[in-house]
């Protein structure tokens, strides 16, 4: 979870070295998939993992699908990239049923422009499921959709995860969506994880001032009188981050120690962590 420019998409894409390079260069770190470091892996290993064990669903299905190719063929293409081409058409039809596309027989012959936004995103999900991935990475997959369509697509993600037992990494800027779908959440700000923990407890009692302020300024249905206390200022440019805490310039709790140097992600127990030295104040509602 994070706002634009916080680095959430870059983090998600970097898991399989999918960030465009140049300009993107992964300078440090590792990505362990069952113990194997994908960042150090030879390209063929990485290639097999992409789409096979780690598959992506992107934000805007209207730009990721080929406009000149029937959607059934696009799903079958993804299947035959990993499996035998022989049964690809049949598997494509099964996948279309799995993502609850109506009338797979008819729709497989449709072109992307003939489908609604929600249907197109279901095609995108079917392509991601082509080789039964262990990890599904969805980067804002419902942001371009209407609220009602969004709700049904979210339900599909929830049920796919339950039925197929795949892990789901869901990138979003929307607390409501995160709350509905995830068990654990990592909040990003200016390229760093600033808070992490079980979704319910993080949203109910945030410990990082950024999380707390962000939650306080989001309108909530049924609570029209919320103050919507805006966070003054803007995040620092990613190439000019302050020496200390990146949120300190906007934070009401910031003290000299916050600005002195990098702040570590501190373990708070119960699976929670926050990159802040004033979590006690936040816990007591003083932010």
């Amino acid at each position: 979870m994070g706002e634009s420019g916080s680095g959430k998409s870059v983090a998600a894409l970097s898991l399989t070295r999918l960030t465009a390079s140049p300009p993107g260069v992964i300078t440090a770190g590792a990505v362990a998939l069952d113990g194997e470091d994908l960042l150090a892996a030879p390209f063929e290993r990485l290639r097999a993992a992409r789409g096979g064990r780690v598959a992506y669903v992107f934000q805007d299905p209207s730009t990721t699908l080929n406009p000149l190719m029937r959607v059934g063929d696009q799903i079958a293409e993804a299947v035959s990239a990993h499996r035998d081409a022989a049964g690809a058409k049949d598997r494509a039809k099964d996948l279309m049923a799995a993502v609850e596309l109506p009338e797979p027989h008819r729709l497989q012959n449709a072109f992307p422009h003939e489908l609604s936004g929600g249907q197109r995103q279901r095609v995108g999900i079917a392509i991601a499921l082509a080789d039964d991935p262990d990890v599904l990475v969805a980067d804002e997959p419902t942001t371009a959709l209407d609220a009602t369509t969004q709700a049904t697509v979210l339900k599909l993600f929830a049920s796919l995860r339950k039925e197929r037992g795949a892990a789901l990494i869901f990138v979003s800027h929307d607390f409501g969506v995160i709350e509905e779908l995830s068990e654990r959440v990592a909040v990003m700000y200016a390229g760093e994880i600033v808070e992490e923990g079980p979704t319910q407890s993080v949203l109910a009692a945030p410990r990082h001032p950024y999380t707390a302020r962000l939650l306080a300024c989001a309108p909530k249905l049924g609570e029209p009188d919320r103050a919507l206390d805006a966070i003054e200022g803007a995040p620092p440019p990613i190439d000019d981050r302050p020496k200390g805490c990146a949120f300190a310039p906007r934070c009401r709790l910031a003290i000299d120690d916050c600005r002195a140097g990098p702040i570590a992600l501190a373990d708070l127990g119960e699976g929670r962590a926050a990159r802040c030295i004033r979590t006690e104040e936040v816990a007591h509602g003083r932010f």
Binding site: E3, R213, A218
Partner: peptide, 11 residues
């Protein structure tokens, strides 16, 4: 707009 920016505009 992002949530925090949205709050600024609504204010």
């Amino acid at each position: 707009l992002d949530v925090s920016v949205q709050a600024q505009i609504l204010a």
